[in-house]
Amino acid sequence: MYSLLFDDCLSRGKPLFSGGIRYLGGTLETYGNINVSDSLTAIKQLVYDEGKISVEELQHALAQNFSGCDSLRSLLLEAPKYGNDLDSADETAARFHNDLCSMIRGMAERVGLHSYLPVLINNSMNTTFGVTTGASADGRLANTYMANANNPMSGMDKNGITSMLNSLVKLDTKHHAGAVQNMRFSKEMFAGLFEKTKTLLSCYFENGGAQTMITVLGRGDLEEAMAHPELYPNLIVRVGGFSARFVELSHDVQLELLNRTLY
């Protein structure tokens, strides 16, 4: 019955997926893209450009899930990461993005489709797949979540929201069929500085941004931020007329902020 609603199916006498439709398009979801590009950035810098790590050392460390290789992992974690408006990491991410997208598009004929495009949305599958994926050269531990879609690896965008937005627009949107761009704001930022937030987002779209998914954080999230500070590096809070990164505040200061009335 569904086939009746599409052009050509009736005249050809064939159902939708059996040659009835004139143009059949499909998509392919990819996961861990940014972990790949951050890994390539780290390998380029540390193995090839600076020679600080050998290929064998890296292989060993990854196989051991960095057990006993803390300093090597620190080097990998400190390497430039996508999402900070740093050329090295962002150029690798853009190149990998373009290559991957072109490759998928180029496979349309092979999979019997007229168009074949990547989709970068992931929902929570980046985590589901991450827990069965080995350690990666961006410093990510085995069996832990991977970066969501083409967003920075969680917690690795540490250079302010404008840097993150600048990084996002470097991945060309013309190559894919859809992507979700996560943005999390504190209530103080989103509501308290609404005009600036609005300008920030308009500017992002003018710069080529295609989509945004906004989360505004409240008090329960600060508790989370205290328990898992590595996930909240960009949570900016106002303290008596000043801005501060919540996770950089001392424990007591965090508690104080946490206990304030939330209106």
């Binding site: 404008t162 840097s163 930022m189 600036k196 920030l200 900016i236």
Partner: peptide
């Protein structure tokens, strides 16, 4: 150097 400063003068 702190980018995206919202409280150190007008604008972003």
């Amino acid at each position: 150097i702190q980018r995206s400063s919202m409280h150190d003068g007008p604008g972003i």
